[in-house]
Amino acid sequence: GQVNVNNTTYTFPTPKLAKEFAQKAAKKYNLTVHVSGNTVTVK
């Protein structure tokens, strides 16, 4: 799974890890998680 945070893309071996990372990043920066297919964007 891929996660985009502040124009930086992070790649994870599983969608589960990507989702967990996205949720932590969203909480940390007070942003929202947007899911589109296999790509998760935090903005």
Rank of each mutant, 00 (worst) to 15 (best):
G1S: 11
G1I: 13
G1R: 11
G1V: 13
G1W: 07
G1D: 11
G1E: 10
G1Q: 12
Q2T: 13
Q2I: 12
Q2P: 12
Q2H: 12
Q2V: 11
Q2A: 11
V3Q: 12
V3A: 11
V3N: 12
V3Y: 06
V3C: 13
V3R: 11
V3F: 08
V3I: 12
V3W: 05
V3T: 12
N4Y: 05
N4F: 09
N4I: 12
N4Q: 11
N4W: 05
N4G: 11
N4S: 13
V5M: 12
V5R: 12
V5A: 11
V5Q: 12
V5K: 13
V5W: 12
V5I: 13
V5F: 12
V5T: 12
V5S: 12
N6K: 14
N6Q: 13
N6E: 10
N6S: 13
N6F: 15
N6W: 15
N6L: 14
N6P: 10
N7V: 15
N7P: 08
N7K: 14
N7G: 14
N7A: 14
N7R: 11
N7H: 15
N7S: 15
T8Y: 15
T8V: 14
T8N: 09
T8S: 08
T8K: 14
T8R: 15
T8H: 15
T8M: 12
T8W: 15
T9A: 05
T9F: 07
T9N: 05
T9W: 06
T9D: 04
T9V: 14
T9L: 07
Y10V: 05
Y10N: 02
Y10P: 01
Y10A: 02
Y10I: 10
Y10H: 05
Y10K: 03
T11P: 02
T11Y: 14
T11Q: 06
T11E: 08
T11D: 05
T11A: 04
T11M: 06
T11R: 07
T11S: 06
F12L: 03
F12P: 01
F12S: 01
F12T: 01
F12H: 01
F12W: 02
P13Y: 04
P13N: 06
P13T: 07
P13K: 10
P13H: 05
P13I: 05
P13R: 06
P13W: 04
P13A: 12
P13E: 08
T14E: 03
T14V: 02
T14F: 03
T14D: 06
T14N: 10
T14R: 02
T14L: 03
T14S: 10
P15T: 09
P15Q: 10
P15L: 11
P15G: 06
P15E: 14
P15K: 10
P15Y: 07
K16I: 07
K16W: 05
K16F: 06
K16G: 07
K16Y: 06
K16Q: 13
K16M: 08
K16A: 12
K16P: 02
K16N: 06
K16V: 06
K16D: 11
L17P: 00
L17S: 06
L17V: 04
L17A: 12
L17W: 04
L17E: 10
L17F: 04
L17K: 08
L17T: 04
L17R: 06
L17D: 07
A18G: 01
A18W: 01
A18E: 00
A18T: 01
A18V: 01
A18M: 01
A18S: 01
A18Q: 00
A18C: 02
K19G: 05
K19H: 11
K19F: 13
K19E: 13
K19I: 11
K19P: 00
K19L: 14
E20D: 08
E20P: 00
E20Q: 13
E20H: 07
E20G: 04
E20T: 05
E20N: 07
E20S: 07
E20V: 07
E20A: 13
E20W: 14
F21T: 01
F21M: 03
F21R: 01
F21Y: 05
F21I: 02
F21E: 01
F21V: 02
A22D: 00
A22Q: 03
A22N: 01
A22I: 02
A22P: 00
A22R: 01
A22M: 02
A22F: 02
A22W: 02
A22G: 04
Q23M: 11
Q23F: 08
Q23I: 12
Q23S: 09
Q23A: 13
Q23W: 10
Q23T: 10
Q23L: 10
Q23P: 00
K24M: 14
K24Q: 11
K24P: 00
K24V: 11
K24H: 11
K24F: 11
K24T: 07
K24E: 07
K24Y: 14
K24A: 09
K24L: 14
K24W: 15
A25E: 03
A25L: 15
A25I: 15
A25R: 03
A25Q: 06
A25H: 06
A25T: 12
A25V: 15
A25K: 03
A25Y: 14
A25P: 00
A25D: 01
A25M: 15
A25G: 02
A25N: 03
A25C: 14
A25F: 15
A26D: 03
A26W: 06
A26G: 05
A26H: 08
A26F: 07
A26R: 15
A26Q: 11
A26M: 13
A26I: 10
A26Y: 06
K27N: 08
K27R: 09
K27L: 10
K27W: 06
K27I: 08
K27S: 08
K27G: 05
K27A: 09
K27H: 07
K27V: 07
K28N: 09
K28D: 10
K28V: 09
K28P: 01
K28Q: 10
K28H: 10
K28Y: 15
K28S: 05
Y29G: 09
Y29W: 11
Y29F: 08
Y29I: 06
Y29P: 10
Y29T: 08
Y29A: 08
Y29S: 08
Y29L: 08
Y29R: 08
N30W: 14
N30D: 06
N30C: 06
N30A: 07
N30L: 06
N30F: 08
N30I: 03
N30V: 03
L31I: 10
L31F: 07
L31Q: 05
L31H: 09
L31E: 05
L31S: 04
L31P: 02
L31D: 05
L31N: 04
L31R: 04
L31W: 13
T32E: 13
T32D: 10
T32N: 08
T32Y: 05
T32F: 05
T32M: 08
T32H: 09
T32Q: 10
V33I: 08
V33R: 00
V33F: 08
V33T: 04
V33Q: 01
V33M: 05
V33E: 00
V33G: 01
V33L: 06
V33N: 00
H34P: 01
H34V: 15
H34Y: 13
H34G: 04
H34D: 07
H34K: 08
H34I: 15
H34E: 14
V35N: 02
V35I: 09
V35Y: 04
V35Q: 05
V35E: 02
V35K: 02
V35S: 02
V35G: 00
V35W: 07
S36A: 09
S36H: 11
S36C: 09
S36L: 10
S36Q: 12
S36F: 09
S36W: 07
S36I: 12
S36D: 13
S36Y: 07
S36E: 13
S36V: 14
S36G: 03
S36K: 10
G37R: 03
G37P: 00
G37F: 04
G37Q: 04
G37I: 02
G37H: 04
G37N: 05
G37T: 02
G37S: 03
N38G: 03
N38V: 08
N38M: 05
N38Y: 03
N38F: 03
N38H: 05
N38T: 09
N38K: 08
N38R: 13
T39I: 10
T39Q: 09
T39A: 05
T39D: 03
T39K: 09
T39F: 04
T39H: 05
T39R: 08
T39N: 05
T39Y: 04
T39V: 12
V40A: 04
V40W: 03
V40M: 02
V40S: 00
V40Q: 00
V40C: 00
T41V: 10
T41D: 03
T41G: 02
T41P: 00
T41A: 03
T41S: 05
T41K: 04
T41R: 04
T41W: 06
V42R: 01
V42H: 01
V42D: 00
V42Q: 01
V42M: 05
V42P: 00
V42F: 07
K43A: 11
K43F: 15
K43V: 15
K43P: 05
K43G: 08
K43W: 15
K43Y: 15
K43L: 15
K43N: 10
K43I: 15
